[in-house]
Amino acid sequence: MNVFGVIKNISLLEYLIRTLAVGIISFLVGRFIMKRAINQFTAYDFTVVWILGAIIAAPLIDGEISFTYIIIPLLTLFFWHYIVSLLSFKNRNLGLFFNGKPMILIEDGKIIRKNFKKQFINIDLFLSQLRLKNIFDISEVKYAILEPDGHLSVIKKEPNRYITPADLNLTAKPISLPVVVINDGKLFEENLKNLKLNKEWLMNNLSMYDIDDVSKVYLATIDNYKKLYIAKKDI
């Protein structure tokens, strides 16, 4: 069965096998392509990912397209993306050319209309983005910057910023990531040991929530301050 070659009349089984192969290739592309292309997604990265998607899907759209025909374009795009990313990293001017520049949309509470026009930004959509950042009054904004990846960065004016411990000359407690000790009824005793706790301590605390068996717990986490979070299973 020549599944990966040229097929004029593709059968359902051959189509399913090709679909599985495309899924594997898509996973490998997502796994090994530069993380920058996925996390930041600049205009250049969007172009690369869009072309990759079209190439990978081609054998599914047309059975007469052999999988061997997509290998060279895939490798070429990988090489191209690597070289351009490396050059952008080494040379700031090239990086700005390929990735774009940040653009100031609001400065000291004033809208920069020419920058809105350059980017064809709709004011209503812009205001909705501000509201998502809990800003309802443009006069509160010191700077609003459109980043090269399309995200909006906002800095409030000093009187409108949240007070931080540093503003009050206070020392904030260090933040630690909670550790999962129970997941879907399964107890992770190794994580308890790392926190210098034991099962007896855990069961005593679970009893405060009327829980007598870890199997009744969907999720339980403990932070460095021994604070316990419990989510019961839905019975």
Rank of each mutant, 00 (worst) to 15 (best):
E200T: 15
K227R: 15
K156Y: 07
P159R: 02
L12K: 08
L192E: 08
N115D: 07
Y209H: 15
A43D: 09
A166D: 14
I235H: 10
Y15A: 11
K114G: 03
S88N: 06
R31C: 09
L20M: 12
I71K: 01
H81Y: 13
P102K: 02
N91W: 11
I104G: 12
H81K: 06
D108C: 04
I70C: 03
K226L: 04
D149V: 12
K101W: 10
L13K: 04
F41H: 05
S88M: 11
A220I: 13
I25W: 00
R31V: 11
T76Y: 07
Q129V: 09
P102M: 01
K114W: 12
N93F: 10
L20D: 06
E147S: 06
L77M: 04
I38W: 04
M103A: 14
T19D: 02
L130R: 00
L197F: 08
L192Y: 07
A144T: 12
K199W: 07
K118E: 05
Q129E: 15
F136H: 05
G109D: 07
I138E: 03
I211P: 08
F41I: 11
L219C: 11
E158C: 03
K232Q: 14
L75C: 13
V49T: 15
L28A: 12
I138G: 10
N9A: 05
E158A: 10
D137H: 06
K117F: 13
R131W: 05
E190Q: 14
K193G: 08
N134R: 10
K216N: 12
A57Q: 00
E14P: 11
Q40P: 06
N115A: 02
N93I: 12
N183K: 12
S128D: 13
L127H: 03
P174D: 03
Y143T: 14
Y162Q: 14
A57G: 07
V49Q: 00
K173H: 10
N93S: 12
G185H: 04
N204V: 08
A43W: 09
I65F: 05
P178V: 06
D167C: 04
I7N: 06
M203P: 10
K226I: 07
K199A: 09
V179K: 02
L52K: 00
L87N: 08
K226Q: 12
R18A: 07
I7S: 01
M34F: 13
K157S: 06
N99Q: 03
P174C: 00
T47G: 05
F116W: 05
V214N: 00
P178F: 00
I51K: 00
V84H: 00
D45H: 09
W201L: 07
I182W: 00
I135C: 01
K199E: 15
D45N: 06
A37Y: 05
Y218N: 08
D124G: 13
V29T: 05
L96F: 15
F27K: 01
L146V: 14
